[in-house]
Design a protein around this nucleic acid. Sequence first.
DNA 1: AATAAATAATGAAAATTCTAATAGTTGAAG
DNA 2: CTTCAACTATTAGAATTTTCATTATTTATT
Lengths: 222, 222
Amino acid sequence: MKILIVEDEIGIANFLKQGLEEEGYDVLVANDGKTGYDLALSQKVNVILLDWILPQMTGIEVCKSIRKTDSKTPIIFLTAKDTVQETIEGLKAGANDYIKKPFSFDELVERIKIHFRNENENDEMSLGNIKIIKSKHQILVDNQEIAFTQREFELLGYLIKNKGKVCTRNQIIEDVWDIHFEYDTGVIDVFMNAIRKKLNLNKDEELIKTIRGVGYIANDLN
Amino acid sequence: MKILIVEDEIGIANFLKQGLEEEGYDVLVANDGKTGYDLALSQKVNVILLDWILPQMTGIEVCKSIRKTDSKTPIIFLTAKDTVQETIEGLKAGANDYIKKPFSFDELVERIKIHFRNENENDEMSLGNIKIIKSKHQILVDNQEIAFTQREFELLGYLIKNKGKVCTRNQIIEDVWDIHFEYDTGVIDVFMNAIRKKLNLNKDEELIKTIRGVGYIANDLN
DNA sequence: AATAAATAATGAAAATTCTAATAGTTGAAG
DNA sequence: CTTCAACTATTAGAATTTTCATTATTTATT
């Protein structure tokens, strides 16, 4: 998890860098707007902390320029410009949050974490003797790898991520198939069948259960 | 775009409701925590504005309960509890933003818009004589519909959404194929070929160009 | 200008995904 | 306890997606 700090006051930059490194983040510092802009586009950065008043390019300019090519990376303004007008200008430039100096470091950390919540989704998850490793695209049953296709992998991953909760067919179509228009299909059942076959589960086993009229649920048996 | 307001002070709730409706949002109001929680789960809401002090369930309880089953819908605390401690508690409960009363209505609107940026992606887009309508899953060339498969549709849509910018093969695999693990493939080229055939474009036409060594770009010709 | 090396386009076969039809189950109503 | 209706599982075949090999094109080098 890499954070880019764009801040010209060395003292503040160092204070932030040290604090965030203690929190376990990789930190990159740029002391002027132009360098910040270049780093934002060239490095894979997860969050950008941006001052407003900077040499070379202002924070607003940096923010707008980044947004021209990258609409996703979260940008947090961190500035002494504290009027409502300025806050709105910063947000309109494409920022995701706007924190006024002086700020609480703990609150900053918490506001940074908001943007990591999704990326933090566990790379490794397990359900009974099944283990799933997203980054390697692997599924192990009793430490033995079993080949899963893309869709099978995603569907099983989704059920395990939500283990203990019922996943409705609608939720599955939305979240796994990413289909947001009206669509009537029986494809989920077909894939559940394929997954159960590969895992050697028959349909009355507790590990993955059918909830009649609703959907499916994965259960850790403790 | 539907906003749920969970607020027990009728005056504030009405003020917010009216203001947000003028901004063009659909607004739903709950006057106590329990009702708010029920509505949040039963209705398809895009953003939730949450007060802290509420009858039945506190905002914190509502927030935590929603997050148990719904980890996505943005929750914005809107409260008079203004200490750093409380802000952090609110954010840790799963909120996405924390605005202290009294607040500027304009700033609230701007902070709400942050969460709509992604969903606001244009339903209709065009490139030259090509028109794409996401909600209907349609592609029209000179007002004549042409059948596209799912992947073809998504890839062309991605290029048009980013028209004027080069899309690298890596970006395309990440954003269109949603593949985040190491993966070497030539599948993009195959689909570009299929798309060009359907659109009757040969490879040196300006509308969709190959950028050698990088990827592809869609260009509006003006 | 000729050649080689790298990259892209293309076609066809393989694999996956999806549809649609059939068989099997479940649970409610009588 | 049966019967029926609604839902789920399973299968096979159709459509889409992906891989892989071949051909074509571009760029750099001689």
